[in-house]
Design a binder for these strands. Structure first.
Length: 224
DNA sequence: TGGTGATCATAC
DNA sequence: GTATGATCACCA
């Protein structure tokens, strides 16, 4: 069996996650002959991709779960020195068009978060990238309460968007979910709905999970 | 100093 | 541009 074959079952994936716990990123990078970057300024997705390779995720830029056969999405969680979530977690792009009649159950947020492999990684700035260790990952599904919370935020956002209020949405909105720009830079545009109901060019946005939400998940587990 | 708004790399 | 992977950088 090749070293980084895709896991055939959830229990196999879990075993491999446990094996990764406590390892340094430099160790994982060396095994696949990847150089370790000085910082992540120009390699923001480096850690996520490193772990995808090690766990045998059927990577690619498909809008499919990372482990297609298992229906599981892989998400790394950068941790502060206090082992709290350091950053919000990107979920998916916000649909700005043709979202009439889109139900929460069929939304990208609900589908992506229904089954997630969370992998905490040390990310305190004082620790060099290569010295950062992988935490104890775990497979998770949202509780009913968490689902309700996310759905409430999502429905509020989608109503604003369908009413042409995209431009008025700031990252302050939403209790657990938020909407922020998701683009290479501020001049990138996509088509959305304007205040007059006509199509309008606007900045692409993404759904993100607030750190309060991911911390809630982390607190219910032992990470290391 | 934490959160919001902006940005980076890469494949197609 | 859209999709994947996210973190940076600045200001309140």
């Amino acid at each position: 069996m090749p070293k980084f074959s895709k896991p055939e079952s959830e229990s196999e994936l879990e075993r491999r996650v446990i094996e990764l716990a406590g390892k340094k990123l430099s160790q994982l990078a060396n095994e696949i002959h990847w150089p370790v970057p000085e910082n992540l300024k120009h390699d923001k997705g480096w850690i996520g991709q490193l772990l995808e390779v090690h766990l045998g995720a059927s990577a690619g830029n498909l809008s499919e779960p990372d482990f297609q056969n298992l229906g599981i999405e892989l998400k790394t969680i950068p941790l502060t020195a206090k082992h709290k979530a350091k950053e919000t977690t990107y979920v998916c792009i916000v649909p700005l068009l043709d979202n009439i009649g889109l139900s929460w159950e069929n939304s990208c947020v609900c589908r992506k978060l229904s089954r997630v492999l969370w992998l905490p990684i040390e990310a305190a700035p004082e620790i060099p990238i290569g010295e950062r260790k992988v935490g104890r990952g775990f497979i998770w599904s949202p509780s009913e309460e968490q689902m309700d919370n996310l759905r409430n935020d999502w429905e509020e956002f989608m109503e604003l968007i369908s009413l042409g209020q995209v431009e008025s949405i700031t990252a302050h909105l939403g209790e657990f979910l938020q909407i922020r720009p998701k683009a290479a830079n501020a001049s990138v545009v996509t088509t959305g709905i304007g205040q007059d109901g006509m199509r309008k060019q606007t900045l692409p946005r993404g759904f993100y999970l607030r750190t309060s939400f991911t911390n809630q998940i982390l607190e219910s587990l032992s990470k290391f």
